[in-house]
Structures are given as structure tokens and as C-alpha cells.
Amino acid sequence: MTLLPSEQYQPDHHADPWEKLKQFTDARIALGRAGCSIPTQAMLEFQLAHAQARDAVYQALDVAQLQQAFSAMSLTSLHVQSQAIDKETYLKRPDLGRILDDDSKQILKDDRQNNTGEYDVCIVVGDGLSALAIEENAVAFVQNLKEQIDLEGWTLAPIVIATGSRVALGDQVAEILNAKMLVMLIGERPGLSSPDSMGIYYTWDAKTGYLDSKRNCISNVRPAGLPIAIATQRLMNLMRNSKKLGLSGVNLKDEHQIQNIESDTPSRLLF
């Protein structure tokens, strides 16, 4: 039997020719190699990102902190819960995350009795698949949006904080509160470089059982993604056009031209 000499690999790190492209994206490109494998640092960063994504999914929403923040903005808030009573149920039964529990329905009905008029706008803040995204982005977004709503002269329903929520839960909330325009903020499914991404779903005259084709979506709202100021511009453009046309979803096109935004936050390019 003839033994072949084992192949020897150089231990030093070999740079990737795409290295210069890394400045434009958070995607895992140009990792280089060490011997026949990826460098240890790249492996550790991947494991950290994976852990952060899992933590974002299982993290409980700090409702008290949100209520305090909204109260400081002179906004009334209500806390509701879906029929997905815990995180395990939420992940295994998406259908239950779309339905309010009985106590929550009563909370909204009680508010409706005290405010018999029609609201122009209802904002629902739902934990979704990333409570982290909501805790880091929702308050600043609501503050920006409220300023624009006030300028339009629209009436705003109490902010509804929803736990165990899927996107369609907002339809039931807006229907009970009798609000024409529904803005649903929800934590998006975390990626390996974006555990803090918030999605915005807009629906005109939302009703229980609406299909996703009735909604408009603005996604990836976060510091390293779509800035809050631009997301607010895009949403307000949709809302103004929606109010004129009386519809939303696939028949409502996002034709917004982005204005220049001054910000103290350093710009981050995406590939």
C-alpha cells in the first residue's frame, strides 16, 4: 500500500479579491480563507449574528417602556394580546396571532364607546418576529408620523400595542376602532445581519379577513436600512393618495420621490 503525503495548507489568511466591495453591504462576501476553511473571525461573527437573530425572535416586547414613551408624547396607548398566548404558540400557530383574545376585544370596544366618531388613522405597534426592531425604531417613527398626521389635520386613534401579533391582527383592531387608515408597525423576520428590521403595513378601510393584496408594505426600516425620515415620507405619500382614491394594496402605487434628508446619523451604503 502506497501512502500519499498529506496536503499542507498555509495557515495565513488569504484576502478575497472582492474585499473592497464589503464597504457597500452587510452581506457575507469576501470572507477570505484560512487554510481550507473560512477565518475564525468570520465564523465567530456568523455565530454571533445567528444568536442575535434567535434572541430577537424570542425576546419579549417591553410594553411598559413603550407606553411610557408614548405617554411622554401625550399619546394614549392601549395594550392588546392575540390568541397566541406565548412565543411557542405564536411560532407554531400563525393563525392565532391574527386574532385578538376576548379581553383585548373588550378593551377596544370600551374605548370605542367613549369615542363614537370615526378616526382617520389607527397605528398598531406589534412585536411580530422581532421585538427588538419595535423597541429600537417604533417610538421615533410614531413621533415623526404624528407630526405629519397633525399637519394633515387627521384624527389619530389611541396607539395600540399588540403582543403575539401577526400583520392581519391590525385589521381587526382598526375595524373595532372604526379607523379608515391602518398603519401596522411590526418586527420583521430577523436576517443574519438585520435583527432590528421593522416593517410598515398600510391598509385603507381595514376589515377582518382582508387579503395581503389589500396592503402596502414598506420594509427594512432601521438605522442600517431605510431611515425613519424617508420611511415616513413614503408612508405619508401612500396615505394621501389612498385617501383620495379610497383604496390601498396592489392598486395603489408607491410613486414617491425621495427628498433630501438632513441627518446627524452617518450614512450607510447598501450593496
Rank of each mutant, 00 (worst) to 15 (best):
Y58H: 14
S165V: 02
V124C: 13
A84W: 02
Q65D: 11
M239F: 02
A42V: 00
D254K: 11
S242P: 14
V125N: 08
G191C: 11
D12S: 12
V80D: 13
E136M: 08
V221R: 05
S104W: 04
R93P: 01
E135N: 13
D26E: 09
P17S: 08
R222G: 01
N251L: 04
K87Y: 03
Y201W: 09
D86W: 03
P5C: 11
H79M: 02
I134W: 07
G170A: 02
L3R: 13
V173F: 01
N137E: 01
E135K: 13
D196N: 15
S267H: 08
A157M: 05
T116G: 00
L269F: 09
G153S: 09
M1E: 09
G225Y: 07
A157G: 11
A53H: 12
A60K: 15
S194I: 00
L3F: 14
S82G: 09
E147R: 08
H256G: 03
H256D: 10
Q257E: 15
Q259S: 15
D26A: 06
T232E: 01
T40M: 12
M239V: 07
V125W: 03
V139I: 15
W204Q: 08
N178W: 00
G249P: 07
Q10R: 11
T2S: 12
W154L: 12
A42D: 03
I258V: 15
R189E: 02
M198E: 04
H256P: 04
P158K: 05
A64D: 14
T203Y: 01
L100Q: 10
